[in-house]
Design a protein around this nucleic acid. Structure first.
Lengths: 211, 211
DNA sequence: TTAATTAAATGACCAATGGTCACTTATTGC
DNA sequence: GCAATAAGTGACCATTGGTCATTTAATTAA
């Protein structure tokens, strides 16, 4: 019987990390269901069966929580993409497919610098920047190996692809509630400029240019 | 003697549009000085010498105000870039130079979809989407002419460059107040991945791939 | 000139939300 | 069974975007 079901107090180290993990997983589901902006700390506490004050025993701030979720998603994403670095078409496909498959990756990436990092404590910012930078290095290193490139070129290529992904992620935003009422031409803009098309066309040109 | 100096009431159509213009220009300066997140409606009202309720006679919501500022900046940006479409190096240079030169362009672009558009009324969203889409069309049309490309290729190229700019804009974010206290390696990440480098390397690959 | 009318201006007020802390109480060890 | 420890709680606070009943400047009519 889990901590959560019994509503027991978390006394040991293990129980505390379990409770924190549970909070993170509830947060993940909440973003999935209600979107990034639909997450409130009061709502998350309620959902996790805790008082707000208790939630804050396990999480320093809202953004520190999002930062941790993003770093985890990014690590998963990079690992998922690494097997496909060699072939251009396979890489483009994998980068977009995994971006959509790894939960929360795109919505969190879209808000990384302007919202999440902008509200981080010094300590959390250091940890986040290092983790994100480290994953970029990992990807670049693997890229150099897979493509037998110089590390400088590999780094540049990864940088460009990440910039493209960051830009495309801006389009992975929930449609407005009144989407169906929008005029035809405006709906058309939504259809036409979605994250997938944006990333695919941009990445194709980047990879062609990198040959 | 202006409306503002005399604290007169705005009775005529002209006086009202003047007052609204004044509010917009104060908002611009406020973003410039205090950053996007430093703008509050109470602060803006005070700065403009108005009560908050008066501010809301001229502006529907905070995001509607930002959306209008962005559309104006985008129009100015596109016009400034159009003379440089032919040569690759000149285009990259112009796109980045003007992005930094046009006030507010990068910070507003970085927040366009996740913050600004996400909080717009249907009416304001329609106007914004149309205006932004229109500027994209304008740029693509000029690109096709300047480079003697097919309109499909021109549109694709513009799309990719805009995605790159959108991604790079995410890095045009104010440094934290405690930047100088950050460890050397973390400061290095900031130095290394700034908007200019990100856009330049990405755009270079895109343009090379588009040849 | 004065009174009546219009609508611009005001700021107290509200709701939502992130975060805090004095107090309560479950759990452990003696 | 009792005292000590610390996890848990929720009322409370500050900030902020936005509203509206009331005030009052400016215009028009008498």
């Amino acid at each position: 019987m889990s901590l959560v079901e019994k509503k027991k107090r978390a006394r040991t180290k293990v129980e505390k990390t379990d409770r924190r993990s549970f909070i993170l997983s509830e947060a993940r589901e909440m973003i999935d269901e209600s979107g990034f902006d639909g997450v409130t700390m009061a709502g998350l506490a309620k959902r996790a069966g805790l008082a707000k004050g208790t939630l804050y025993l396990y999480v320093k701030t809202k953004e520190e929580l999002f930062a941790q979720l993003f770093v985890e998603a990014l690590t998963e994403y990079v690992s998922a993409v690494i097997p496909y670095l060699e072939d251009d078409a396979a890489l483009i496909d994998a980068m977009m497919r995994e971006a959509q498959a790894v939960p929360l990756f795109l919505p969190l990436m879209a808000r990384l610098t302007t919202i999440i990092e902008a509200n981080l404590s010094e300590e959390a910012l250091i940890a986040t920047k290092r983790a994100v930078g480290g994953e970029g290095m990992r990807l670049a290193t693997e890229m150099a190996v897979a493509r037998a490139m110089g590390s400088t070129e590999a780094f540049e290529l990864v940088h460009a692809l990440v910039v493209a992904l960051q830009g495309a992620a801006q389009l992975a935003v929930p449609r407005p509630a009144f989407f169906d009422d929008l005029p035809e031409d405006v709906r058309g803009i939504y259809e036409q400029s979605n994250a997938e098309v944006a990333f695919t066309t941009t990445a194709r040109l980047i990879l062609k240019g990198a040959q």
